[in-house]
Simulated scan of single mutants.
Amino acid sequence: MPSPAIIAELRETLRTIEGDGYRRRETLPFGIPTFDSRIADGGLRLDALHEIAAGTANLGDDAAATLFIAGIAARAWGPVLWVVRRRDLFAPGLYQAGLSPERVLYAEARDDAELLALMEEGLRHRGLGAVIGEVKRATMGATRRLQLAAEGGRTIALLMRRHPREDADPLGTPSAALTRWRITSAPSAPSRHGMGRARWTVALERQRGGDPFQTLMEACDDTGRLALPAALGDRSRAPGRASPRTAAA
């Protein structure tokens, strides 16, 4: 029977080789059980790279994807580094998604290569809650470096894949990202006071250790939280109706 010291040493060696550890990685859940239960880690792993793309190249979908990212960053701890190629972020809009301006550090990169290098540097710093970048092109090697830089820390890496061309799929190239999301604007429900809360079609296109899925969600509120549309939430609790897992599909 091996001694406890040898077992502990072996486990440490395996953690180093596999990079996956025996301790549960910290995650950032969305706070919606029927949604989080469909994500392999029960939420977004903090020490990992996650990719997000707009459903189409139009401005509405681009804004939805940006606010989806802002909502995630808003719920992370600490300061946020946002690396951009162009100065088109609207601070009041980010604030409405829960990301206050005093938390955000902006860096402007000349090209995608410099942007990815700045993201990698930010992830290795270990003092940031989130590192965000927006690129048109990133190779498998570049995303693997971001994933390796994030591992072992508590800084979530969020890479927005912009449409390189209107007819191109920004998520069509291989990536080392743990999850890949596609966010598309959806019609909001009317209310007594006009249009209701904005809605998005949120599609998890790929996740390591889990299946893809798609669901209709209400957009981030001022705390960065998504919500199930009221009709889906009511249906999931009504007797004789579909289960919460099915209602969110």
Results as ranks from 00 to 15, higher is better:
1 M>G: 15
4 P>R: 04
5 A>M: 10
6 I>W: 09
6 I>H: 11
6 I>C: 06
12 E>K: 08
12 E>H: 10
16 T>W: 06
19 G>V: 00
19 G>E: 02
24 R>N: 07
26 E>S: 02
40 A>M: 09
42 G>T: 11
42 G>R: 05
44 L>D: 00
56 T>V: 04
56 T>M: 04
63 A>H: 12
64 A>F: 11
65 A>N: 08
66 T>V: 10
70 A>H: 01
71 G>T: 09
74 A>R: 03
76 A>M: 10
78 G>C: 11
80 V>L: 10
83 V>T: 13
85 R>H: 13
86 R>Q: 15
90 F>E: 09
91 A>M: 12
94 L>Y: 02
105 L>Q: 13
106 Y>N: 06
110 R>Q: 11
111 D>Q: 06
111 D>I: 04
112 D>F: 04
112 D>Q: 07
116 L>R: 00
118 L>D: 04
123 L>M: 06
123 L>K: 00
124 R>Q: 14
126 R>Q: 14
127 G>C: 07
131 V>W: 00
134 E>P: 05
134 E>S: 13
135 V>Q: 09
135 V>W: 02
136 K>A: 13
141 G>E: 15
143 T>F: 12
143 T>Q: 11
149 A>H: 00
152 G>S: 12
154 R>K: 14
158 L>E: 00
161 R>I: 03
162 R>N: 15
177 A>C: 11
186 A>E: 15
192 R>S: 13
205 E>Q: 13
212 P>V: 05
219 A>L: 08
222 D>S: 10
223 T>Q: 15
233 G>H: 14
237 R>G: 03
240 G>Y: 03
241 R>N: 14
243 S>F: 14
243 S>K: 10
247 A>W: 01
247 A>D: 08
249 A>K: 09
